[in-house]
Design a protein around this nucleic acid. Sequence first.
DNA 1: CCGAATAATGAAATCGATTTCACGAAAGCA
DNA 2: TGCTTTCGTGAAATCGATTTCATTATTCGG
Lengths: 329, 329
Amino acid sequence: MATIGDVAELAGLSRATVSRVMNNHPYVSEEKKKLVHEAMHQLGYVPNSLAKRLRTQTTETIAVLIPRISNPFFSSMVEAMEIKAAEDNFQLIVCQTRSDKQRELVYLEWLKTKQIGGVILASSENNWEDIKEYTKFGPIMFCNEYPPNTEVPTVCLDQYQGGYLGTRHLIERGHQRIACCFGSSRITNTSDRQKGFLHALEEAGLSMEEKWWFSNALEIEDGKEIFRKIAEMDNRPSAIFTGSDEVAAGIVKEAKIYGAEIPNDLAVVGYDDQPIAELMDPGITTIHQPSQEIGARTMELMIQYIKHNQKPDQKIVEWFSRLIVREST
Amino acid sequence: MATIGDVAELAGLSRATVSRVMNNHPYVSEEKKKLVHEAMHQLGYVPNSLAKRLRTQTTETIAVLIPRISNPFFSSMVEAMEIKAAEDNFQLIVCQTRSDKQRELVYLEWLKTKQIGGVILASSENNWEDIKEYTKFGPIMFCNEYPPNTEVPTVCLDQYQGGYLGTRHLIERGHQRIACCFGSSRITNTSDRQKGFLHALEEAGLSMEEKWWFSNALEIEDGKEIFRKIAEMDNRPSAIFTGSDEVAAGIVKEAKIYGAEIPNDLAVVGYDDQPIAELMDPGITTIHQPSQEIGARTMELMIQYIKHNQKPDQKIVEWFSRLIVREST
DNA sequence: CCGAATAATGAAATCGATTTCACGAAAGCA
DNA sequence: TGCTTTCGTGAAATCGATTTCATTATTCGG
């Protein structure tokens, strides 16, 4: 591969001038510009970005940390992030923590080695105190999920509202015995949703049973298991508010196997509004989360952060969660 | 951040010696090794990988080109790839071509700038001739999909077999009027599946109508549209072999809306065996593709290729496609 | 005991860009 | 005309590692 030196030599100029032409610096005569461009073209020259990055101490590479890319919520978020990144010629590295504290830290270490210019945490297993140390090595942002007490820019939704909306809907449908399940309780998202859920219950003067409360439910299989547990109960809930469409889909699927009727035997509210929520039969009532919008916005802000050192606001909540009513309630 | 120079100074040694210790070179006394390790630890030193890469002209970064990460087939493949890459401390960059020739080339250009050490094409819009030029800038491999005449290592499945199995199954179920739909006809995968499909038909002495043949069907919406078209036909097929579970799910969903019975009015075979195939009601009979296995294997081979310059075999076909029978047939 | 091989280390070159500094030419101003 | 800016350019330093080459100390074989 041709280097900047080869171009300089062919053009009969110095490397400095070639560099100036490439970076659109002022004070280069048109005549020399033309010479440089011709030489570059003739040699098929492409600048080595490693050298550039080393010298300028910047990197157009952003890592996004997620549990698993095969989770549709995250893949749709990452889809939007990558599109946004590509617009600015940034690269997106996918880092799957598989919900493991240690793996999360391994990826954060990459900031130190300057392999990446910034990290977007779209999920997080570690406490803020442990993540905080990495902020001195590069920009860090949270997207959607975040642990308590964070001190870096965070793009997210009002999860309280989502929890409230879904539960309120069930109450309006006449349900009085409402179960619920949520994801990891470490996450502020989860506790906010819980607050919304409990507030709606309280507002309607409803109480709930201890055993109707399921935690750490994240996948289809968890949903199936939850349905089986409910089926075995004496005192069954008539509705359930879940923390994800996947869990809801698992419940719906298992109900079918057990010959239970949705929503008559059990009404189900999902969360996220993934494609599956619409495809299932019955279609799943859910809380729409604009995963693509928050992904794109986070990436946009991260790029500004890296390129112009513009630290975004501490907290960005620009969207509303919406209730999408389908046949499962 | 501390540099190798700082470590050398603190240890009272030269940068060369520090480098030797880090890279486990022979001929370094235990005494000096200890000094270096202490200094590194004291400074919290982490080597700058940009500098290393520039000097050694190698990069532990691999790009994988796919149409969209939100497509479950690809996200599950990428999931396995990333896990494999992480084992060797390689980074995976997700590049979404959005089925655009130009975008695909933009990502391939990154090979020239040395930003990436290799490219895995898990989808491809360009002809081999146009991709071939990039082989001189770094290792390129195909995974699953590939255009005709490729000359680089390719990890894939026997798609002919998949097409044959699915169609054969429909024939055994007594269907004689079988429609089909496939993805992009540019891809060898598609034409192989078509061959399998046609061979099964021919073997059974069946013919098909021109209008039962749908092409470029890839997404849920395409499936819905296909069902509507079929519903309007006078001479309807009794079964359809689709090229993806998403298309099949779209068909099943739209059928429900039209009040059609699956499989009585129309039997449907999907492809890929995505989670959705099991979740739909009725469950979708499909061809299982070991997307994770081929993803992991491709990554494994690519890493060997980059690290030890071991070019893998031209063609790697190590798995069988399996028919998974559910209620849609 | 001497020459050769081996061990241990550092100085300096190198990877390929950007950027600072110096310098001469041209232009602007009094 | 003389002095200060503004242009335009190149030499050399720089980013932070690795690697070559040279050098000295030590060990080994005969």
